[in-house]
Write a protein that binds this DNA or RNA. Structure first.
Lengths: 257, 257
DNA sequence: TATTATAGAAGTTTCGAAACTTATTGCAAC
DNA sequence: GTTGCAATAAGTTTCGAAACTTCTATAATA
């Protein structure tokens, strides 16, 4: 039923929840020489947050679904308190609603909400990308190329295969967009961007379930954005990015209501 | 020690946390005929969230302070689970950090963080105000005038009195700014604005503790913003607002580091 | 039939104790 | 002295049971 579960928890390291910055790691092994930057063994509670969010994004729980503790404790094998803690954070992030005495529900979706999220996301990502292009170093550039390639591997597959590995596509798609803006120095901008990204991701899934989008167009768009970015052509990159996001959202919007 | 606590919970209706909207007050009497539209009883946990946030904003807990459960349970008279739940939400809002195994701390402050928060807040509030001016009705206008007056009552006091009632000033200042943007239809914009507003509020307190700001200048600025707004002069109102916020932040910035 | 009252079920909220992790202290060996 | 290690203390994290609230179904009443 669930797809690529193990990957997920590790990758949800973006920083939507983090406060300070990107240090969220956990220790476990006293010192492990290699250590990328954030290698983290998160307390089971932090894991849960990522898992729950992923399950909402993936529409494992449909919008407006009641989130009963009896179900959740069984599904995740964790206690009520731990679950409440994670759900509370998702309330702040806008994925879950809480009505006193009546418990938690998955937040509703609507065409209007999608429109708002889209516009905010575009504004954030454009600025973050422009700043990133201005500040990025070689390593930043390299990671963009790498994550683009990783994403391309899946996008070049046949339709059936692509559907089968959709969970992987989602992860790599997120990584690609994160790589683009990674050199932006504005912490809050990255945080807000991340917030909106996850919101949009839920809508992206919704569209995937209804119909399949324009086939290989996306791959081409991603390539164009990547190329303009590593060429440091901020104006072009930003324009391409905006069109990319807006068109995707508009096609999703048609499937709503 | 705490000032105007009862007011607080009622006024924290902005919508930083909530999904739904603006319902937050307390219940007690079984049914009270009046009932505006959304009268909702908040579970003690929701209260706690507002109280904790207020205490962080007010620097009752200084930045980087460790938030020990032994202290908190005593101070608020609530169980550990309930506290964790509220703290988790504050992590999402950026007021608190969580390091696995080492517990919660009040998020740090810095000149750079202030600069980021300020710019984002300005961008949000400007757009929200412009939209609000375009869409606001008579009732909206009236509430602005009312909340300006309420705020002015405190701003016109002597220095000593103003300091004594600073807690009230904070509440009314928030209400005034909320009234300005109340007619904006973009839910997410209001939410993001609210997020940044509370962040800035913490810095405002910090400045209050160090030195007293320019005396009556603020009152004049608020009046000018109010007048331009009710005159539906969006361009002017937005420009005044921007200057008002930026100057305040800049003066605070000087007291940091 | 429609309405209200009541009992029971279902579900949520809160709490504190048990398990676990991190920090501190004391003590010995070098 | 200081380094290493163990023992203890302090603190965090997790869990499930008890208290409480909301919902549902049934019965009583007009």
């Amino acid at each position: 039923m669930q797809e690529s579960e193990t990957l997920h928890t590790r990758q949800a390291h973006s920083d939507i929840r983090g406060s300070g910055s990107l240090n969220i790691h956990l220790k476990k092994s006293p010192r492990n020489a290699e250590s990328r930057d954030d290698d983290a063994s998160l307390s089971s509670g932090q894991d849960l947050l990522a898992r729950l969010r992923a399950d909402i994004v993936k529409h494992t729980f449909a919008p407006e679904t009641k989130l009963k503790f009896s179900d959740l404790t069984e599904r995740y094998g964790l206690g009520i308190g731990t679950l409440r803690e994670a759900l509370s954070q998702l309330v702040s992030e806008g994925f879950v609603t809480l009505e006193s005495g009546k418990g938690f529900r998955v937040a509703p979706v609507s065409r209007r909400d999608l429109a708002e999220v889209t516009e905010h996301y575009i504004a954030f990502e454009k600025r973050a990308l422009a700043q990133s292009i201005a500040a990025g170093d070689d390593e930043w550039e390299t990671r963009i190329v790498a994550s683009f390639h990783s994403l391309g591997i899946i996008e070049d597959l046949s339709w059936a295969e692509r559907m089968r590995r959709h969970g992987d596509w989602v992860d790599r798609h997120r990584q690609f967009h994160e790589a683009l803006v990674a050199a932006c120095a504005d912490r809050w901008l990255l945080r807000l961007r991340s917030l909106m990204f996850y919101q949009l991701e839920r809508y992206r899934f919704l569209s995937k379930m209804n119909r399949e989008k324009s086939p290989t167009r996306k791959g081409t768009e991603h390539r164009a954005i990547m190329e303009a970015t590593v060429a440091r052509d901020a104006t072009k990159a930003v324009a391409l990015l905006e069109r990319h996001i807006r068109e995707t959202s508009e096609s999703i919007s048609g499937t709503l209501d």
